[in-house]
Amino acid sequence: MAWHQISVITNENTAPKLADFFDHLGAVSVTYMDAEDEPVYEPAIGETKIWSNTQVIALYELNIDTGHIKQAVLAQFKTDELQHWLEETIDDQEWERAWMEFYKPMKFADRLWVCPTDQEQREEGTVCLTLDPGLAFGTGTHPTTALCLEWLASHDLTDKVVIDYGCGSGILAVAAVLLGAKVAHAVDIDPQAITATESNALKNNVADKIICYLPEQF
């Protein structure tokens, strides 16, 4: 199945309103992307930060009249708030597998491999953590996760007790146990993260050493 994709660049104040308007006009999905490679740092609690110049991308079914959508948007927003309006038809993909092109085995501190399924590395003196990207954060590609994995792989964790607070996919908890920790306590506010951690612990044969909690249970 193919889709109509509409993208437009706007400012940080208009972007949420435009996204809501696209949704009102029947968009299947609406996505924000950085239009200028601008870093956005950790927001305060309750704050949602987006980029000064944000690309808003709306996806519609093919039977939608994109001319009507553009006319409605131009009637609702000032012209100088909208830049680089682009319409294109995109083919459907096996999105759950598309990441494989970019997600490759990674090695940390010469002791730990993090690998997607079917690309496991079996190297003497190392351990291999098998993990596929999912709904919960944490694959090892983000700099903060990579730094934590590097630190874990650089230390002797034999018989240590580890707390992974904000565990996401559980990658740090699983890595710690594979590297010798006695037990890892994995905590996250998101039930999907708990499910992902339990699944990844099971996949890596360490489910008996990882205990998962929601914050109120910890």
Rank of each mutant, 00 (worst) to 15 (best):
V177H: 04
P39T: 10
Q55D: 04
C115D: 03
L172T: 01
D156C: 13
Y41C: 01
A176G: 06
S29H: 07
N205E: 14
T54S: 03
Q93Y: 12
V183E: 15
Y32W: 12
M106W: 01
H4C: 02
L179E: 07
C167W: 06
V127T: 11
L112F: 00
D118L: 03
W151R: 09
L59V: 04
C167I: 09
K78I: 00
L157V: 05
G26V: 00
T195R: 12
T14G: 08
A184V: 00
T117D: 09
L62I: 11
E216L: 05
G134A: 12
C148M: 13
G166R: 07
D92S: 15
A184G: 03
I163D: 08
Q5C: 06
A27L: 07
P105C: 04
D23I: 07
K78G: 13
N11Q: 06
S7H: 03
A19W: 00
G170C: 11
V206Q: 00
P143L: 13
C167Q: 10
D34I: 08
I9Y: 00
T117L: 09
A181C: 04
T195A: 14
L147H: 06
L59D: 03
Y60D: 01
D164K: 10
E47Y: 10
F77P: 10
H142K: 13
E47I: 12
A2L: 11
D37N: 13
D92V: 15
D188M: 06
H142N: 14
I194R: 08
V162D: 04
A136E: 13
V73M: 12
T139W: 10
T126P: 09
T10Y: 02
F21M: 09
K104V: 01
I171P: 01
T14H: 08
L149T: 06
Y165C: 09
P116D: 02
E96D: 15
A173P: 07
L25V: 08
A146E: 14
E94Y: 14
L214Q: 15
P191T: 01
E198H: 00
L129D: 00
V30A: 06
L18K: 03
W113F: 04
K107D: 01
T14F: 02
H24G: 02
T195C: 10
I90Q: 15
K182P: 11
D92Q: 15
R111T: 02
V206W: 00
E198Y: 04
V161Y: 14
W113I: 06
E124N: 11
K49H: 10
T130C: 12
A2I: 11
E61I: 04
E38A: 11
I50R: 12
N205D: 15
D164M: 05
D92Y: 15
G166L: 07
E88Y: 04
V162H: 08
G140H: 08
K160M: 10
D188P: 01
S52H: 04
W51R: 05
C115V: 01
N204W: 00
L82N: 11
D23W: 15
K104C: 03
L62D: 01
Q55A: 10
Y32C: 10
I194Q: 05
L74N: 13
T126A: 12
W95G: 03
Y213V: 02
L152E: 04
A35W: 02
Q5W: 07
E150Q: 13
E198I: 03
Y41N: 13
I194C: 01
L157S: 04
F77C: 06
T195V: 12
Q119Y: 12
I50M: 02
L149I: 06
E88M: 14
N11T: 14
D164G: 09
C128N: 15
L86R: 15
L179A: 11
T141M: 14
